[in-house]
Nucleic acid binder design. Structure first.
Lengths: 206, 206
DNA sequence: CCATGTTGTGTCACCGAGTGCCACTACTTT
DNA sequence: AAAGTAGTGGCACTCGGTGACACAACATGG
């Protein structure tokens, strides 16, 4: 694939070119998961669909769970950069709110795939569990941002609590979105508004 | 074990008596995990230490992950009852705060085992992931409570967001406690104070 | 054109978690 | 003593994941 795409950029790196890409594998997997279910799809099924061997598949992804996430690390890097680039006079919680909404704005084209991915992650138990691990990097980005803005250590109580709470809010919002539909970005904006203002004002006997 | 313990209560239920208890298995497992590590301890090791067969072990616990948690479902039931019994004139977020602190008050005797358990859950990746699944019941209890108090549906945005945020706050607090020590109940009280008041007031440029 | 280094791929063997099946065991009641 | 019931253990099997090794496909240098 490097071979055909390199064009005028000169020869690619030495060695045998890669036979596929992470994106191809993820696309093939989501197709299978969506049709037959996550647990019912074996790794051999995926490898066969992607046209590679089982062993090679595990060189592209460390586990079956990770296939669903694609290149999440790159997305987190983008999120981290956006947080860091927020203007100094913007309220931290408002900056967080804005960046989270932007982070989840993949455009209308990517929405169907995003829905499939999030439906799997929020409904399949094995993936629900794994989500926590994948989200940790995302959480760390928030904790670092809050630490930077407040002057606290990234591992102190306030930054970690804000980060984990933000994760919880995101998770809940995605779950509501998958179940009831609606506009994802609007829901996220509402939910993070609640978080910034504090729940006490909004959760009252009624 | 039922056999020796039934005493004057008459004969136990028909059939062969159980050879061990969940608590015995959990105790033996924590010992092994603490000494040799979670991943390094195989299910066969645990079964041998508990004096039962591998097959029987999986009749007591659905997975190796669940062994660490013991009878968590019973604890959640207790938590749910405490929330439901909170006085009607108590602010919901304050009731939640109080109940969470009480929920984690197992007394000084149980502290070493709690530390071991929570150290495993917060540091071993496989258990970190599984924790989300186990905590879901705990989250549902909160969502139901908030729904009850606010009149919203348990699956609406506000109750789910509060519940997930509360879970995130607890997770962060436990992580700080395991890493830095201190008084767990005090930390929880502080963290849930932040959550109730809202982060905006506490997270400001400084 | 051939030799060499480099990188990716496939095959094989293996381990650990988890499950279905079935015989057996230890208790109960009649 | 016979029948019923619930728990146990062994066996074989599936599936996810890993290490080792040979092989294939590219680059470069002679």
């Amino acid at each position: 694939m490097e071979t055909e795409a390199r064009g005028a950029e000169g020869p690619g790196p030495a060695g045998r070119p890669r036979a596929t890409t992470e994106l191809d594998i993820t696309a093939a997997s989501l197709e299978l998961f969506d049709r037959h279910g996550y647990d019912e799809t074996t790794v051999d099924d995926i490898a066969r669909a992607a046209g590679i061997s089982r062993r090679t598949l595990f060189r592209y992804f460390p586990s079956k769970h990770d296939i669903v996430w694609g290149d999440f690390a790159a997305q987190v890097a983008r999120f981290r950069a956006a947080l860091h680039a927020s203007p100094a006079d913007e309220e931290p919680m408002q900056a967080l709110r804005r960046c989270v909404v932007e982070f989840n704005d993949y455009g209308a084209d990517a929405m169907p795939e995003l829905r499939t991915r999030m439906r799997l992650i929020t409904t399949v138990p094995a993936l629900q569990g794994h989500a926590m691990l994948r989200h940790q990097e995302w959480c760390d980005a928030i904790a670092d941002f809050v630490a930077e803005r407040t002057g606290a250590a990234p591992t102190a109580l306030l930054p970690t609590v804000v980060a984990q709470a933000a994760l919880g809010v995101s998770t809940a919002t995605f779950r509501v979105w998958i179940a009831d539909g609606g506009d994802l970005l609007e829901l996220l904006d509402d939910a993070f508004g609640l978080l910034a203002d504090g729940f006490a004002a909004n959760v009252a006997a009624g």
